[in-house]
């Protein structure tokens, strides 16, 4: 194996070993209860999202209102990321928390209306039914705006570029600034897990679920989710960090009406199509 690839593969292993070896440091008068809830909460949140995803024919938990549950879960990121900044009792974290909520106001409304589009088209809130309804044409093809808003929302809830101002370099790490040791490991793992979970939920919503030639359905779900997560991270790393004061206006004035228009088109196709 070439040295470069080997050391790139070792990065997550080395970081994990480093953080496991590190003794977590506390800050003066930190709100330890809320801080711990926040730092350990992101990973279970991602797991709860993954539980909703239909792997091929059936999900672990088949839920008639899976889309709404996904939405409810992604709103928990609001609480957890803000508490992460609050718990440390330090300015960078607190400002990071404020930034996250401001950005969340920007990405969440387009995301909510983006979730409506596939649900209207499939006439169901069940992720399994929505996936099955795409046997003819994947929803991403005729709902590109909704898909875009959804992807932006996934980047936002996993605090990833370009919506990573809450953990920005200009805030010395923001909500991550005071985290060390295993707490930091849990948060970083949680952020990756949220990105993957968001990508996995996109598969039944927009990417045809487990449909695909030759391979079994569950493997197609895994492949599609992995590819989308990788693509989101790759696109994000080529974009600058966008502060809330840059994002909010275009998110509400441009993206939100566009997504509403997308919903209108989908509704018209369903009624008259």
């Amino acid at each position: 194996m070439p040295d470069r690839i080997r050391s790139a593969l070792l990065v997550p292993v080395a970081e994990t070993a480093r953080l496991l070896r590190q003794r977590p440091r506390r800050t003066v008068e930190a709100d330890l209860l809320l801080w711990r809830i926040a730092s350990s909460g992101l990973l279970p949140l991602a797991v709860l999202m993954l539980v909703l995803v239909p792997w091929g024919d059936r999900a672990l938990v088949s839920d008639p209102v899976g889309v709404v549950w996904f939405n409810a879960l992604d709103v928990f990121a609001w609480a957890l990321v803000w508490l992460l900044g609050w718990g440390a009792n330090a300015v960078y974290g607190l400002v990071g928390g404020y930034r996250f909520l401001a950005l969340a106001l920007g990405y969440e409304l387009p995301l909510m209306f983006a979730l409506i589009a596939p649900a209207v088209a499939a006439e169901s809130l069940d992720l399994g039914v929505i996936a099955a309804a795409q046997s003819g044409l994947w929803y991403v093809v005729w709902m590109p705006v909704a898909f875009l808003a959804y992807c932006l929302g996934v980047l936002g809830m996993s605090v990833r570029a370009p919506l990573d101002a809450a953990a920005g370099a200009d805030l010395a790490g923001g909500v991550l600034a005071e985290l060390s040791g295993v707490d930091r490991l849990l948060v970083q793992a949680g952020r990756y897990a949220l990105l993957v979970a968001g990508a996995a939920v996109a598969v039944p919503l927009f990417l045809g679920g487990g449909a695909g030639p030759l391979l079994p359905g569950w493997l197609w779900v895994v492949l599609k989710a992995g590819a989308l997560a990788w693509a989101l991270a790759a696109v994000g790393s080529r974009l600058p960090t966008l502060r809330p004061d840059r994002v909010l206006q275009p998110a509400w004035v441009v993206l939100l009406p566009l997504v509403l228009l997308q919903d209108l088109v989908v509704a018209a196709v369903v009624v008259w199509g």
Binding site: R25, R26, T27, E29, N89, A90, V91, A177
Partner: peptide, 28 residues
């Protein structure tokens, strides 16, 4: 173990000198 009050640095709120008794845990 744990931080010492008063070793607050750039990240933390620093109103050092003031003393508000019960309303000021760790001098904050």
């Amino acid at each position: 173990s744990g931080p010492q009050p008063g070793e607050t640095d750039h990240g933390e709120m620093d109103h050092g000198e003031m003393d508000h008794g019960d309303m000021a845990p760790s001098g904050i």
